[in-house]
Each structure stands twice: as structure tokens, then as C-alpha cells.
Design a protein around this nucleic acid. Structure first.
Lengths: 228, 228
DNA sequence: GAAAGTATGTGAAGTGTAGCACTAACTTTA
DNA sequence: TAAAGTTAGTGCTACACTTCACATACTTTC
């Protein structure tokens, strides 16, 4: 009985999540470089721009292959393309946006999404007064219809911008409909089944983590930290 | 010649930044517990709510003192008070908000700030058509006046919600005026002098870090991660 | 009031990430 | 064409954070 079967040693180790979170920053910076007409960059130059060490960038990229040329650096256009491929940005991702209050409406109007592979595919709210009205050229639909829309369009990504008390219920329904990744602006931790990704944006929490240092007059020497 | 003078061994080690970032989550959860009328909680129960291990919570708190009772747990009201004190939330923090576009306006209107010790003390924009108009009861001021207002009110915290191309210039002027901590919604890494804290909110980057997993159908087992 | 049960605080072990420093590969200079 | 200069990729080391597991302290039960 062959217990302890040899595992394929050559299998590439899965990149840590911290690395995955940095890739979008690299991609963003590369886009800016291209806009500036810069076509080649070293890990050092790239790192200086985003306050990450050159070694870190090289290490991070090494999880996915070899992209640079020794003595030269990286071809900006090619590296950007490759990082976008890694991130799955070779096609557009339709996203359901739930909760069209002040914040939700601002998110719906934000042009930065579409340009970066994120397409707001549906706006949902539960307030009857809002349903049927438009944000730019997009109609606000009833959240009751979210299930149908998500299934029809194969939506797997959602943004939640509802009050904290409603967030869990909304998340539950989204997951049931097929959503597998949620970006939540609601200030509460969501409980979701295995297989579903959740990330949070909470400006209050971020501010509070800085008041800690301000209250103590601790200098922010930790600038080396472009964390989202 | 006394080289290597003994350093005070009892000096408490500075808590890591990751710990500081979790404290606001603990505080938030404790507030919800209070709202539910729950006055006592164990590290286990608190951890279950926010997907953090009980040991982590206890270790984190141990950087600041002893707050619980063995065999019992924590007094919710008291622990909340103490965490808020640690975070410097015993008084209100005036904040300058720069960039009153869709997003900036939504931030200005968000009620979650005031309730949590953050007071939007001034709205600034450079668009002459906006200057002088009101958001709720607050006038939009010229960004040229930011320097004066920041100095007069002793503002040390700012939120930037301007386009990426303008963010660095805005940050520079804020820092010159006395701002020491910046929350930036602009999708670019800011260069600031030592002594200034910067944190970022970038929904596009967050979404892109999730498309990576969706594109690969990797299950989000890493739920143990209520990171902002 | 002793025994069983619960839960904190913490030293130590375990895990994971970042940075160093070197080799190899490529370009530019002389 | 050789030497000098640049920079990617990477094994190893160092550090930081997380988790474990236990001693301690308090409560509840019988």
C-alpha cells in the first residue's frame, strides 16, 4: 500500500496572497510608465516609484516566470500584458453593485473601473423610490432581480455598498446566486462559505489606525508600504 | 567611556503595525456587541465574529496591557473604551477632505465618520464652479485656502479624493500645511517625507487581486482575513 | 469548600515573508 | 574583442508575525 505517494516536486509553489495583492500595484505603475512613454524599466526604478524594494518585485515576479532581461530590465508593455494575464484581466469582469446610496452611486459613476477590466453590469437597490431611476445610462434594478441577472450574465464578482446591518443578508443572497468574490464597503465582517472571497474597504478603520500614531506623535517611517 | 549603555529592558516593545490595524476592527465589533446588549465577551466569541483566532486577539491586546478576567472574558464596554483610548479616539479628529467629485461628495455625506471620532472639518476643491456651493451644511472651499484652515484648526489628518495626476501635488501642499496622515483614494503611490503616514483605498486593485483567484477557480479558503 | 469548568496572558515553537548577496546574462565602452 | 557596467533570478538568512499550549486565576457546581 503506497502511502506517502511522492508529490510532484516541480510543481510551482502557490504565490502567497500578499504577492497577489501587490501585482495590481505593479500593473498600475506600469500603465503610468507607458503613458509617460517609458518602454523599459528596471526593478529598481519600478520599486522607487511605488516604495517597494527591487528585490521584492523580482521575487514576486519569479513566482510566475521570468519576464526580464539581465542587464536591461523589463519591457514595460510586455510585463504589463503578462501581469494582466496573470490577474485574469485579459477579459472584462462583469460586476454586480448592490446598494445605490451616495457611495454606491459614486462607485457606479467611477470611470476607473471600466478602463481596468471591471464592468458594472447591474445596479441593485431595495428602495422602491430608487428602482427604475438611472445612474448615467444604467438603470437601478430591484435587488430581488439580482439573482436572475447574476445567473444570466454569469456574474461572479460583486460590490456591496449597503448599511452594515443589511450586508450579511445581501452577501448570502449574492453567494446563493453564484457570486464568488465580494468587495464590501459595509463596516462589518461577513461570514461566507468556503470558496468565496471577501475583501473590505473601511475608511473609518484605516483612519483609526492612523490616529493611533498621530496621538503618539510617532513618525511614519514605514512609508515602505503601499498597502491598499 | 561608557559605550553600550544599558537600555531600559522593561520598555514595552512597540506593537507591530498589523496589530494597530486590527484594533479598529476589534473596536467596531465591540460596538456592535454593545448595541446587541452584550456586556461580556471572550476572545473566542469575539474572534468568531470577525474571523480572527482567539489567540491573536489576546496576543494583540497584550501589547497594551491586561484587559480581561481569567475564567470570564472581557467587559465589552470597558474594553471598547480602552481600545478607543489606545487609538486616540477619546477626542474628535478634524479632517480635511480634498477633491469633491462624486466620491468626495459621498465621503463628505457619510455619517459613519462623525459617529466614530472623525469630523470632516473642511471640504476643498479647485473647481471654481464648485467653490462656494454646499454639501449638506458644509461649504466647499478653495483648495488655496486649505493651508490657512489646516493651520488654524490644527488639522493633522486628510483624505484625498482627487484624480491620480493631481494627488502628489495635493499631498505635498497638505504636508506643508501640517498634515501628518493621509488617506488617499487616488490610484497612485504618494511620496511623502518621513514623519507622514499614508494609507490607500483602491477598489480596482482589490478587485484585481480577486480576479486572479476567480480566473483560476481557487476557492477562497482564506476567509481568516478581515483585512481592510 | 473542593472539584470541575472556563478563559486570560504569555513564553516558546512554528510559519511565512522580506531582504541580502551572489551568479549569470546581457550591453556598452574602450 | 576584452573589460567594465548593469540588472534579472534565486538560495539562504534574518526577521516578524501567528499559533500553540500551559500556568494562572476566576466562577460555578455539587
Amino acid at each position: 500500500m503506497a502511502i506517502g505517494v511522492e508529490v510532484d516536486v516541480d510543481r510551482m509553489e502557490a504565490p502567497p496572497d500578499v504577492v497577489i495583492r501587490r501585482l495590481p500595484l505593479y500593473a498600475r505603475s506600469l500603465r503610468y510608465l507607458l503613458q509617460e512613454g517609458i518602454e523599459s524599466v528596471s526593478s529598481q526604478e519600478l520599486g522607487d516609484r511605488i516604495n517597494v524594494t527591487a528585490a521584492q518585485i523580482r521575487k514576486d515576479l519569479s513566482y510566475f516566470g521570468e519576464f526580464g532581461k539581465q542587464g536591461i530590465g523589463y519591457d514595460v508593455r510586455k510585463l504589463l500584458q503578462q501581469i494582466e494575464d496573470i490577474l485574469g484581466l485579459s477579459h472584462e469582469w462583469p460586476v454586480a453593485l448592490v446598494g445605490i446610496g451616495h457611495l454606491g452611486a459614486a462607485i457606479a459613476r467611477y470611470e476607473g473601473f471600466r478602463q481596468q477590466g471591471i464592468r458594472i453590469a447591474g445596479l441593485f437597490d431595495s428602495n422602491p423610490e430608487k428602482i427604475g431611476t438611472m445612474i448615467d445610462d444604467m438603470p437601478i434594478l430591484s435587488f430581488d432581480d439580482a439573482d436572475t441577472v447574476i445567473k444570466e450574465q454569469g456574474i461572479r464578482l460583486a460590490i456591496i455598498a449597503v448599511p452594515a446591518q443589511r450586508a450579511q443578508e445581501v452577501a448570502d443572497r449574492l453567494v446563493m446566486a453564484g457570486v464568488r468574490a465580494i468587495l464590501s464597503y459595509a463596516p462589518t465582517v461577513l461570514q461566507v462559505p468556503d470558496g468565496v472571497w471577501v475583501r473590505y474597504i473601511d475608511p473609518v478603520a484605516v483612519l483609526h489606525s492612523m490616529t493611533y500614531y498621530l496621538a503618539r506623535d510617532v513618525s511614519g517611517a514605514r512609508q515602505n508600504d503601499p498597502e491598499t
